[in-house]
Design a binder for these strands. Structure first.
Lengths: 240, 240
DNA sequence: CGTCAGATTGAGCAGCTTCAACGTATGTGG
DNA sequence: CCACATACGTTGAAGCTGCTCAATCTGACG
């Protein structure tokens, strides 16, 4: 199977054959991580960065009182800790929410890419900047949107992100998270997640059975979440 | 006056004379922006990135109902829209909170740096990653901390960040923001900001008159805010 | 069939909001 | 130099949003 990172970067800008070869060879080894296990732990100083080849993961921070905040979800093709290449020490953990296949890209390889393949380096940099843009959008939703709008916004985002990597089937996605985990992402309690989900269901915007989420009314969902996908900087090819 | 970016990058890693020269020459022109004016507007496609040489600024998003969320503050030496080099379109605005002096670095110069000075490029990339780490910390504070802890946390962060660029005088900093702006950063109302400030004052942690904030009890403030500066990745020199 | 994680529901409460009034400092024009 | 305007800070009261606690329901699985 082709390295999903190649596919992802090619949505942005053309890659030369040589560049593709470099990315193909960048994965030094592949490992599996079980659901609910950490892919990287807070405080780690990894010597390689983890590329998500398969599965669904989340970044999170834990507070002293044990409460948890999820700061992003990650889908296939995401380089979950590319930042550890330069930040060195992990200031947060990354947990596998399903069984995941992880490709390890040595930091030495990344350093070499910055030295010899500046165009590739810019593309990788770009993807860390999109992560940053997603964080800003989450901050805005967390600070200034009511819970139902916030949830609607998150569903819109995850739908588009999963669709982009070919993980949506029509209007349906798999969202392998519990209501408690959704609460950790939205900054609300699991009880309130439940009520807000019923709200969206009652409004005929979504259906959700188990982990299968179906978007019944995309426009309505966008309206409730005030969703504007600009921040995802989706796949407009621009020369980098 | 030396380019404050050089000073900032040198706190991370050694710069060669040539690299310093490149940074010195990177600023194509300097402009002034008045308080409350936008440095960059949402939707802009700048052809240069703005380096904050003097002043205090904020990134923000505005929602359809007019509510605003500030997603970060910026101090001297910060490259407020370095990300526009690769993201192209601004998905948020940047406003000057005081009169600011801005150095413009053309994107063409940044591209050249990635081509010819990969070590410098890695240092610039690093700083965008620290922005990202700050966003994650804000998300955590917003989602999982009560308002007084959140405010205490923000004060701890701004104190350290201002101190790092030589803008703290002992235990005192200038925080040129109104209570309404603080509310926009914390995701709460201006009224509640006022009450929470009184809370911190009453606990003997800070004094605040006008824009002058004095930290009276650093340890106490850190405790209330559960502040751990790891995420700022402060000035530990690591070879990049 | 029992167990267990996760979803759902209800009741009471806390934190924060909104609205509206009032205080205070600073600046400006007559 | 006073009168007024303006921006910001402060206070009170009432109400809503989301929380906590605790019980109950549901479905998957050994």
């Amino acid at each position: 199977m082709a390295n999903p990172l190649i596919r992802k970067l090619e949505q942005r800008d053309r890659l030369s054959e040589e560049e593709k070869q470099v990315l193909e060879n960048a994965i030094a080894k592949v490992r599996e991580v079980g659901a609910d296990d950490d892919i990287v732990k807070e405080g780690d100083r990894p010597s390689e960065s983890s590329l998500l080849l398969e599965g669904f993961a989340a970044r999170y921070k834990v507070l002293s009182n044990g409460r948890r905040q999820i700061t992003d979800f990650h889908v296939v093709g995401d380089f979950v800790d590319l930042h550890s290449f330069l930040l060195k020490t992990m200031d947060h953990g990354i947990v596998a929410l399903t069984r995941c296949r992880i490709g390890a890209v040595p930091h030495a390889t990344l350093a070499e890419i910055t030295e010899k393949y500046p165009h590739l380096a810019r593309l990788l940099w770009l993807h860390t900047l999109i992560d940053s843009a997603i964080h800003r959008e989450w901050l805005t939703a967390m600070g200034r949107r009511p819970a139902n709008g916030h949830l609607a916004h998150l569903i819109c985002e995850m739908y588009l992100r999963l669709k982009l990597v070919g993980e949506a089937e029509g209007d349906t996605i798999q969202l392998p998270v519990t209501q408690a985990e959704l609460g950790d992402a939205l900054g609300i309690s699991n009880v309130h997640v439940n009520r807000v989900l019923q709200d969206l269901r009652g409004a005929g915007l979504i259906s959700l059975r188990g982990k299968t989420l179906k978007v019944l009314d995309w426009e309505g969902l966008k309206t409730v979440g005030e969703f504007d996908p600009t921040y995802l900087h989706l796949a407009k090819k621009e020369a980098l």
